[in-house]
């Protein structure tokens, strides 16, 4: 079978969805590590943020890959959902979905759209600001500016509230998505039980950590 044929298959699309999801989870892990530095050591946070903001590999290779990954994961998710809805044109009059599947697994599109909407706000808050500082209203670089800029973003209680709610939805998305991605790429063996434990712990602890960091800056500024 040609590669073209493979890309047209439902399994290949699910594998692509899973791999893009795992890539985003990897990114989420490193993002969480950097954010946690803002609580542990502001100097280290400034140092890493400056590196991430000015390293050409991060800026011109990894950042475009990340943006592509987000767009691909979202578009593929919506396309799969469109196909799935088409596969049952007449709905059941009575359907007891909760009897056999978790809420998270049945509502990945909803949690995904909320997380994407949050990403819009997050990009506006930090990425657009960075682009402005670096390329539009170019200002001399101050490698210590990041920590204060971060804290200023968490002054507004409404913004902090939106961030916390979004992290709850992210946790729900990951509670199904992380483990599901392993199933999609065919990983189901004696290590699956341990991996499931790790995936569930990651899905709860990392979003909870993001939320706590936002709340920490809000209440300590």
């Amino acid at each position: 079978m040609s590669n073209n044929g493979m890309l047209k298959s439902s399994i290949a699309r699910k594998v692509a969805m899973a791999l893009s999801g795992l890539f985003l989870i990897l990114f989420l892990g490193q993002h969480f590590f950097i954010n946690s530095m803002s609580v542990v050591s502001p100097d280290t946070f400034n140092e890493i943020s400056h590196f991430m903001g000015y390293n050409p590999v991060v800026q011109f290779v990894l950042q475009p890959i990340l943006i592509f990954g987000v767009i691909f994961h979202f578009c593929m998710g919506l396309y799969l959902d469109y196909q799935n809805k088409k596969a049952r044109p007449i709905k059941y009059v009575k359907n007891n979905g909760a009897a056999n599947a978790s809420w998270m697994s049945r509502n990945m599109v909803i949690t995904g759209i909320v997380v994407l909407a949050f990403l819009g706000l997050h990009f506006y808050d930090f990425w657009v600001h960075e682009m402005n500082v670096k390329y539009i209203n170019v200002q001399p670089e101050d490698p210590t500016r990041y920590y204060e800029e971060l804290r200023q973003k968490f002054v507004d209680p409404v913004r902090v509230g939106i961030y916390v709610v979004s992290f709850v939805l992210l946790a729900l998305h990951l509670l199904h998505g992380f483990m599901s991605s392993f199933q999609s790429i065919g990983f189901n063996n004696k290590y699956s039980r341990s991996l499931r434990g790790f995936a569930y712990a990651f899905a709860i602890l990392v979003p909870a950590g993001f939320a706590l960091i936002a709340l920490y800056h809000h209440f300590t500024i």
């Binding site: 439902s10 799969l80 697994s105």
Partner: peptide
């Protein structure tokens, strides 16, 4: 014309 598996486990 079957749909795609999303691993709900149902």
């Amino acid at each position: 014309g079957f749909g795609n598996c999303t691993n709900t486990g149902a």
